[in-house]
Amino acid sequence: MTLANRRKTISAAVMFFALALLLVELYPIIITLLNGFRRDIVILSGQKFSANQFTLDSYMLVFKNKQMMKAMGNSILVGLLSTALSVGVGAMAAYGISRFKFRGRNALAYSFLVFRMLPQMSLVVALYLMFRSIGLRDTIAGITLAHSSFNVPYVIWMLIPFFTAVDKSYEEAAMVDGCTRWTLFRLVFLPLVAPGLVVAAVFAFINSWNEFLYALILTGVKARTAPVAISSLIGGDTLTWGQMCAASTVMLTPVFVFTLAMQRFLIRGVAAGGVKG
């Protein structure tokens, strides 16, 4: 066998193995996508997949389900609000940490990262009691604030490298022109770190979009988000798998689109402690 042939064989073997791996990894996802297009009764009867089972009934039921639509609307609203809040506040803090020298700078930066890694279960009971006593339980404001507890530290950590990368000469030039730190931040830094803001915003939104525990405990009927609403489709006597899969597909679509579009930033986004609900 020539070397070129050997290379080709190895490459083919690797591709075959990779495809097999991919199939295993995608199987549950495919199951979810396909079952959204089948009727509950067909799913429950354990029939094999076939093209003539295709129906949009489950999607229609999901879209006609007022509570589910409200929950999805809440998810979008809470995601946008907590993203806006975290990116606004986080960009300021990241600027403060990366462009100033002060005592305790490292300690502050590290504590933000440690805060991002705290288990939600450790905070949620206290938040529940707090929110209940000040009337924030089951409000959009409350759940938004709760989501900021992981998104603010997350955004700060994501943005620090973007702020550090800005060349000092920009600052110097602006200072000669008599800019204050605030104008400098707004008019010079924010446009320069815009790509970072977009990346941080996308990941912050996904964090909030996927979040379950806070939503489960801190919301009721009014501010309930979609993950909680979807989880209530299954349990006890309700086994509406078709609707569960359809609603899940709706939730997964933006996440997968962002994920595939953001390949370049995935590692940092995930390593900073993102994505997990």
Partner: peptide, 24 residues
């Protein structure tokens, strides 16, 4: 493409993952 697609489960909503496995 394969390397990108293999990462999709990481971004599967946690509750959807739990429910899909429950279903399977």
């Amino acid at each position: 493409v394969i390397r990108a697609l293999i990462l999709l489960p990481v971004f599967f909503l946690p509750i959807v993952s739990g429910m899909t496995w429950r279903f399977m």
